[in-house]
C-alpha cells in the first residue's frame, strides 16, 4: 500500500505545492511591489492604482478554492492544454495563492523602518534601489515567513485538487480513507501530511533565523 498509494501521493503533493508556491511567489511579488510603491505614503503614491489592485486582490482572495478551480478551467486548458491532472491543478493553486502572497509580501515590506527608506533617499538612492537593495533586503525574514505560510496553505489547498484528478495526499485521504472506509490509509495520509507540514515549517523557521540579524 505504501509504495503503490502513499509514495506517489506524497510525490504529487510535493510537486503541486512546491511548484505552485514558487510560481505564486513570482506572480505575487509584482503586485506587492506595485502596492508598496503606489501606497499613500509610498515612493510613488497613486491612489487609483492602489485601489484597483486592492479590489482585484480582495476579489481573488474571496473565492472558495474549489470554485476558483472550476472557474479557471478554461484558463488552465489554455496554459496546460488540459484542465484535469496534477499539472493542471497547479494553475488554480498558483492563482489562488498569488494574491495571498502579494498581501503578505506587501505587509512584510510595510514593516520596513520608514527611517531606513528616508535615509536611503537622503543619499540619493533611486526608487528601484530603495525597493530592491533596501526594502526587500530588510524585509527578507518576513518574506521567508510569508513563503513558509503560503507553502503550508497550498499543501492544504492541494487536497482539493483531487476533484480535478490532481491526486496527492488529500485525494488519497478522501478516496481511500473516506469513501472506502479504509481508516488505516486515512491515518497514514494524515500522518504524512503532519510530517510534511512540520518539515516545511521547521525549514522555514530555520531559514528565517539565518536571515534575521
Amino acid at each position: 500500500m505504501f509504495e503503490k498509494i502513499l509514495l506517489p501521493a506524497i510525490g504529487e503533493t510535493l510537486y503541486m505545492s512546491l511548484t505552485a508556491t514558487f510560481l505564486a511567489v513570482l506572480l505575487g511579488f509584482i503586485p506587492a511591489i506595485m502596492l508598496i510603491l503606489s501606497d499613500e505614503d509610498g515612493l510613488k503614491p497613486n491612489a487609483k492604482l492602489y485601489r484597483s489592485l486592492d479590489v482585484v486582490i480582495n476579489t481573488l482572495r474571496s473565492f472558495p478554492f474549489i470554485i476558483l478551480m472550476i472557474i479557471l478551467f478554461p484558463v488552465t486548458k489554455m496554459i496546460i492544454g488540459k484542465s484535469i491532472g496534477t499539472t493542471a491543478a497547479i494553475v488554480p493553486l498558483t492563482i489562488g495563492a498569488a494574491p495571498f502572497i502579494a498581501r503578505l509580501i506587501e505587509s512584510a515590506l510595510k514593516e520596513v523602518d520608514k527611517g531606513v527608506v528616508e535615509a536611503a533617499k537622503s543619499f540619493g538612492a533611486s526608487n528601484f534601489q530603495i525597493i530592491f537593495k533596501v526594502m526587500i533586503v530588510e524585509a527578507l525574514p518576513g518574506i521567508i515567513s510569508t513563503i513558509t505560510l503560503t507553502l503550508i496553505t497550498v499543501v492544504g489547498f492541494s487536497a482539493m485538487a483531487g476533484a480535478v484528478g490532481g491526486g496527492g495526499l488529500g485525494d488519497v485521504a478522501i478516496k481511500y480513507g473516506y469513501y472506502r472506509f479504509q481508516t488505516d490509509v486515512m491515518i497514514y495520509t494524515v500522518m504524512a501530511l503532519i510530517v510534511l507540514v512540520q518539515f516545511f515549517q521547521s525549514l522555514g523557521d530555520y531559514i528565517y533565523k539565518i536571515t534575521k540579524k
Binding site: G115, V116, A119, A120, G124, E138, K213
Partner: peptide, 27 residues
C-alpha cells in the same frame, strides 16, 4: 548633503561595514 536621524535608520540586516558602504555601492 549627508543626513543623520533621531533613530539612526540603519539597515538591521547589514553589518556596520556594509551599512557604511551602502551609499557608495549604490553609486
Amino acid at each position: 548633503v549627508g543626513m543623520i536621524f533621531q533613530h539612526f535608520s540603519l539597515m538591521q540586516r547589514k553589518t556596520v561595514y556594509e551599512n557604511i558602504a551602502l551609499p557608495m555601492q549604490l553609486w
